[in-house]
Amino acid sequence: MKQGKTNVSLLHKNYLHSLTIKKRWVRFYQIVIFLLFFSSWEISSQKRWIDPLLFSSPSKIWDLFLEKLQDGSLMANLGVTLTETIFGFILGTLLGTVLAALLWWSPMLSKIVDPYLVILNAMPKVALGPILIVALGPGYPSIIAMGAIISVIITTIVVYTSFKEVDPNYLKVLQTFGATRLQCFKEAILPASFPTIISTLKVNVGLSWVGVIVGEFLVSSRGLGYFIIYGFQVFNFTLVFLSLLVIAVVATIMYQLVELLEKKLIKE
């Protein structure tokens, strides 16, 4: 009996050990890819296998990073873009959810606007950029609007679908207690769709970055999008790459934060 027990705990130990080893290998290869990518980039740039003017090199980008960090312009511009993105995606998600709620409230309305939603969803929203700039002026409002508009329609569609898919028996339970439509929405529809809303938040983080960067391309004299367009105009591709890398890192962090929020909020 005791023999059997130690055997099991030994086996379990071995199993855990094999899991850790697997995990370490995965990490190892991830780091190898990372190092391989940047070192081959650096070497091929220095050996002039690729055009250093066009493709820059990690060391030049790093130097520029330190320089821009010191003169404060990187943080200032990152701050601008980040603020616009956060407002953009929160606005997009909230507006999309409110629209979805309206559609759920009135089945008639949802039938009427259905084809328009499909058209709006299919249309490339960034094409609205010039109109937004003229309407809202070149500045924060039009760029935030860009970040929001790019995600609002898809959010509406996804959240509305999830509203409709809530098990009707939950509504039946509430109706037997004489619940109004508003109470049904508050007690069943909205909380049941909470996971979907959070997951659209994750998608919208990515979308809003696209909207905001394009918006900055068009108008701004500040922000990372401006850095990219400026670097392109003066043929400083090191600046373009620097902005790209910073965006990649910050967008990843934002995504992780939303994921963390998801874990905190959803108890189930």
């Binding site: 098990d167 028996n169 939950y170 039946k172 339970v173 509430l174 037997t176 207690f177 004489g178 619940a179 109470q183 007690e187 069943a188 909380p191 049941a192 909470f194 108890k267 189930e268």
Partner: peptide, 26 residues
């Protein structure tokens, strides 16, 4: 009062919140 095939307790509410929902709504 209506009882369904399955319990249809709201999974995001505690048992207390679940059993008080009818009183709350009315």
């Amino acid at each position: 009062g209506y009882m369904l095939q399955q319990d249809y307790l709201f999974p995001w509410k505690t048992i207390e919140e679940n059993i008080l929902i009818g009183l709350k709504l009315s």
